[in-house]
Every structure is written in C-alpha cells, then in structure tokens.
Amino acid sequence: MGGAAALEKLMPVVLAFGAGVLLARRKVVPAEASKVFADYAFLFAVPCYLFGNIYGADLSALFAWRAIGGYAAAAALAVVLVAAASALAGIREPRDVALRVMAGVQVNTAYFAVPVFITFFGTAAPIFPVLLFQVCVLSLVVISIMELGRSGPGAGSTGQKLTRAVGASLVTPVVLSCNAGILLNLLSVHVPTVVLDGAAFVGDSASPVALFALGLHLGGMGLDIRGTTREELTLIGFKCLAFPLLAWAVCGVLFGVRGEWLTYLVLIAAMPTPQNLFIFAQRYEVGVDLSASVVIKSSVVSLLLLPLWLQTVAG
C-alpha cells in the first residue's frame, strides 16, 4: 500500500479525532464530555461490536497461535527491556516500574486500534486475541503489582489484593463480551438475529465515537511539546517505534509469521499507550502527570506514524 493510499485510508480516523480536538479547543463541546463519549464507547459500543463479530467468526482462523505466540514473546521481551531500563535509571519501586512497563508495552485497543483496523481493513477481528492476551495477562500482572503495593486503610491482605486484581482485569465489559462471544460460538448456541442486529447497529458507532472522545480529551488538556521530559520521550519512542520493530523482528524472523498477520501484529504494536494508564495512575497515586502526558503524546505520534508503518509493513 502506497503512502497516498495509506493517508486516504486514515482520513476517517483523522476526521473523527480532529473534530474532537477542534470542538474542544473552540469550547463548542466541553472537554469534560469526553468521559461520557468514552464511557459509551468502552462500556457499550465496543463490547457490542466485539461480541457480534467474535460470535460470528471462524475461531480457528481468528486465533492464529503462531502469530499470537510471536506477539506474546515480543511483548514479554519488551517488558524485560522496559523494566531493565527503569532499573538503570534508578527507578526501583515496583509500582513505578509497572506503570512504565504498561506505558511502553500495552496498546490502546478499544479506543484506537479497533477504529483504525475497521477503517484500514474493514474488520477489527485480528485485535481480539491480542486484546484478550493484553487484558488477561499483561494488565493482570500490572494490576497485581499495583494492588500489592497499596497500603493504608482498606488495602486488605495479600490474598484480597490479588483477588481484586484478578476481578478488575476479568470483569470489564470488553473482556466479558469477548469471552461471551467465544463461549457461545464454541457451544454453537443460537443467538437471535434481532440481538445480533442490535449489537451490530450499536457497534458501528464504536469507531467514530471512541476517536471523537479521544480528540475531545486531547483538545481539552492541550499538548505541551516544550515541556516533554527525556523520560516521556523515551517511553513514547519505545512505544511507537521500538516495540513495533521488536514485534516485526520477533514475529517475522523468529516465529516465521508472514503476510497479513505480520502486518496486523506490527500495526497493533504501533498503537499508542492506552488511556487506562492514566486511570491506573490516578487510582494507585503513582506517576499521574507522566501518565497523562504519555497517553496524549503517544496518541498523536502514533497517528502520524501509522501511514508509514502501513506502507512499510504491507508494502
């Protein structure tokens, strides 16, 4: 795919995202409304989209284990690299390290990858197995470390903290909808057409609403380029450049992934840091300012680099 074709494919993404930024900057729509739009997308529209598509998918083709194994290996290596770099920088507190691992390795699936994949490929199906791996493995590890580091009233015992961590990872609407779709698919349970049509109708709104919400959020907070710290630059560079290259090398060279799946995995790795990073930072009172900055700036950098990644990998 050439550069012009990639940019053309990206135009709907830029339009929805840019409209949010513009309307928030001009105060036509209050930036605070981004939470309402984001909650609608994350809690309702995206789960509807995921459920309907997973239920109707060919799971044997969807879960390409060589490809998913390659991505998992690349993510594990990336975790080690970020943790080692944090230690070399003098960051020893486990929660601080976990936050930086999440910033450098986790990807924004629901708000960014899903709409981008729908725009580029007409489907977000390749994201589903990576999304489950990310939530059920990577997020579980990060949340567990955060919970174990909590102190003070209500913190609870180690067992209670781990129970909260597992619960927080597995009961989000996105994960529940994916698991429900997989289970009903495997059991060949008949879901009424009216339910699937309703889920498809709502799910079609997930892509533009999620991007619009992200644009409102960015437009409200602003983008302080001059105030970017060296650590922020390092994390953003790793997330938007190093991790995709690592995924390309590990999946393509070591695991022999070729064709469309290699393109999918590299593009997924190139997605920005998820907004959940900022939510976790606020909840556990660690690195709040760093998290907000990395989420916003990695979103902008990722958006700018997507045509390059698509042209390079797919070409």
Rank of each mutant, 00 (worst) to 15 (best):
E231M: 07
V295R: 04
I68Q: 08
Q282M: 12
T193Q: 12
L218R: 02
A67I: 07
S291E: 14
I296T: 14
S293I: 02
A24P: 05
C251A: 13
V21I: 11
G237A: 05
A168S: 15
F37E: 09
A76Y: 02
P307L: 05
R92P: 11
L88H: 13
M221D: 15
V174S: 09
G52F: 00
V175W: 00
L308M: 12
P307T: 04
L15Q: 04
I182M: 05
A75W: 00
A73W: 06
V294K: 09
L235P: 01
D224F: 02
T229W: 01
L245P: 04
G203F: 02
S169H: 02
V28G: 07
Q160F: 03
L233N: 05
R283K: 08
A210P: 11
R150W: 00
V194S: 08
A247W: 01
L223W: 10
N53I: 00
P272G: 15
F112Q: 05
L245Q: 10
S302Y: 09
C178A: 12
L183P: 05
L148C: 08
A98P: 02
G220D: 07
A168M: 14
L245D: 11
T109M: 12
H217Y: 06
L214P: 11
L81T: 11
F243Y: 10
L211D: 02
T229S: 12
E8L: 10
A155S: 13
Q311R: 12
A74K: 00
E8V: 12
L196R: 00
R283L: 07
G252F: 00
I296Y: 04
Y40H: 13
P272A: 13
G152R: 05
M221E: 14
L99K: 13
M102A: 09
H190E: 15
F280L: 06
N179D: 13
S34H: 14
R66A: 08
V116S: 09
V288I: 07
V107M: 14
T193D: 14
L99G: 11
K27Y: 00
F120W: 10
I268M: 13
T123M: 01
G90L: 08
T234K: 12
L50N: 05
F255Q: 01
G259E: 14
V137Y: 08
V130K: 01
A24N: 05
F44S: 15
E147D: 10
K297F: 10
W65G: 09
W248R: 06
V257T: 12
L131A: 15
G259W: 11
